[in-house]
Design a protein around this nucleic acid. Structure first.
Lengths: 340, 340
DNA sequence: GTTTAGCACTCAAAACAAAAGAGTGCTAAC
DNA sequence: GTTAGCACTCTTTTGTTTTGAGTGCTAAAC
């Protein structure tokens, strides 16, 4: 079921309006500012229809309407990257004047700019495992049924993961398995290992051990996950939004922001997407109530260096956010290229 | 001018009360809860006297009194470390169950516990330069009057600092100076260098260059300063205090918390003190409005590993905070000792 | 069939008024 | 030096009224 053009226009206008005012939007306002050729009564009829279709919500009978999550989803799906104004561009670029010495430096600068320009809380996930090469994997038996997974890369040694192994596994078997593990998984970049699908690479004879290999792979993924550095900036921005004048909401928000691991997980899921918009809890369990998360990937030539993004109220200024993220993303890639 | 015993008792009771309620305290309340042997009228007279001495403030004529910063200073100066209850101790120690793998790990755990137990925002400064040994110092002439200070330690190379040198310095002179620098300052631990006093070690013949040496030393101190890792935890706690229900206050607080460098500076000043309490802006320019900072030093055998502390409203529960910091400080030292 | 003017109705928010009550300062007596 | 007593002050609470924005519906116009 598709919306009529007029309904689309009304809905879009209403969301546009709500994003700036955070107040219920009335039929009269839509008429005056967006659709002067129709009377407010007509628009009221349309609004009523949109409401029963689930796009709008009325806080109480004598109030205007506010967009539902469905409406926001409609809104962002229409969205394209619009070019920034010259002012906005210079506002961003004047922050990058000084020399940049490391990726970490870049990330910390970026979060500052991002938060300042969008008036939202910004998050950067730096993928420290990028380029790290796994050189050796070894299962070391601890007890009859348990083994330590020892992972040696060119930069680190990981020895914090224990998995279960079949009870009847002999030392010779274990040796063999270690051979296969190294054959299959080394030397390989950690980022590559993350994407490996065992079904594709396991020989028939190794199928019986698939669950064991699966476990090892899980450890490898775990390892690559841990090697992330998360920084946030501008948490205080949230207090400027009326929807967070409620203390409990604000508190919940801040608490989520502090749980870096959860933040990283939220970013992790949308691997592959250049730009990702998650609206409200329904789309991402871990988001604070009433929040959206817009993320972008930072990478050159298939190497992912991390992600950047902003988190804020569902009615954030997606247009601006998307454009700014796009611009900064390109900027970073340029900086990283110069580096090399 | 010293306070009479009764005044002391009244003042102490009032602060004690205010710390829990955050409300102006009335003469009647003090009488009922702390001084049943005097009438409220008598206490009123005393309160009036304490007010004119600057210990108390009255929000308006028909309200009780609230303690001034001076009163809090009086209060904490009386404070001693009181033993924790068994409940509090177990609340702390149950968090340290898992194995601890690194100092960083310790710090991150400690901030969590600290914030949870005190209901305040906790801060940890990890002194990464601890144990780092400066191996070589070299001045490299850039222009006639400028030189780069190159510092090589066992872990890092620092080359971001430029100082002025006398215009008439020949290359031979510079070589000599480099020799002296290395003679005086290497090989030494960075933490040692921080405390060096040039007056004590400079020979007569080097006096003329004292200011130059002073500059190099400043760079070394700068270097050791940079090598700090600051983590905070529980920023959201602040929202539970009525004094931060005002949005602007809360915002300001959060913004300060995000400026890690400033936080580090606040800790830096009280080198040498085991425990330090700073009450309000008057004592520490960089504190958020209406905040106090209680810090403790973490170290074994004169080696400073960093600091931990909490930041929160001036009327925080100093008794508890001080005891908890004391307890956790000792706990960390034990953990660090086991490590070695 | 679609649009719209008109009007009754709803409900939150603002404005106002009154009452309650907590606390003080002062005076006069103990 | 201490305290009972009381007038006075000022905030807080509570209730009431008013206002006005906005809707839904109906009936007429297009």
């Amino acid at each position: 079921m598709t919306l009529s053009d007029r309904k689309k226009k009304i809905l879009y206008s209403l969301v546009d309006d709500y994003i700036v005012t955070a107040e219920p939007v009335s039929s009269k306002k839509i008429q005056e500012e967006h659709l002067p050729d129709y009377s407010s009564a007509t628009i009221r009829n349309e609004l009523s229809a949109l409401e029963s279709m689930g796009y709008l919500v009325q806080p109480h009978t004598s109030a205007g309407r506010i967009p539902s999550q469905k409406a926001f989803r409609f809104y962002v799906d229409q969205l394209m990257v619009t070019p920034l104004t010259q002012d906005e561009i210079s506002a961003i670029e004047c922050h990058f004047g000084d020399k940049i010495s490391s990726l970490q430096d870049v990330m910390s600068k970026v979060t500052k700019v991002l938060s300042e320009v969008t008036h939202l809380t910004s998050i950067a996930v730096e993928d420290k495992a990028t380029g790290e090469v796994v050189q050796n994997i070894k299962l070391v038996r601890l007890t009859q049924g348990n083994a330590l997974v020892l992972v040696v890369s060119d930069k680190n040694v990981f020895k914090d993961h224990i998995i279960e192994i079949p009870d009847n596994l002999s030392d010779v078997d274990l040796e063999k398995i270690n051979g296969w593990l190294n054959h299959l998984f080394t030397p390989k970049k950690i980022d590559e290992l993350r994407g490996i699908n065992l079904d594709d690479i396991l020989d028939e004879e190794l199928r019986v051990l698939q669950s064991l290999f699966e476990d090892v792979l899980k450890v490898l993924r775990e390892v690559s996950k841990k090697k992330k550095e998360i920084i946030t900036q501008g948490a205080a921005q949230i207090l400027d939004y009326p929807e967070y004048s409620d203390k409990d909401n604000a508190k919940q928000f801040l608490q989520v922001i502090e749980q870096k691991q959860k933040l990283a997980d939220m970013f992790a899921e949308d691997n592959g997407m250049e730009l990702n918009i998650k609206i409200g809890r329904e789309e991402e369990q871990n988001l604070p109530d009433g929040c959206s998360l817009v993320t972008a990937k930072i990478g050159i030539n298939k190497n992912s260096y991390g992600n950047i993004g902003v988190i804020g109220p569902v009615r954030m200024d997606y247009k601006k956010v998307v454009s700014v993220l796009d611009h900064i993303g390109k900027l970073i890639e340029k900086l990283l290229n110069e580096e090399e």
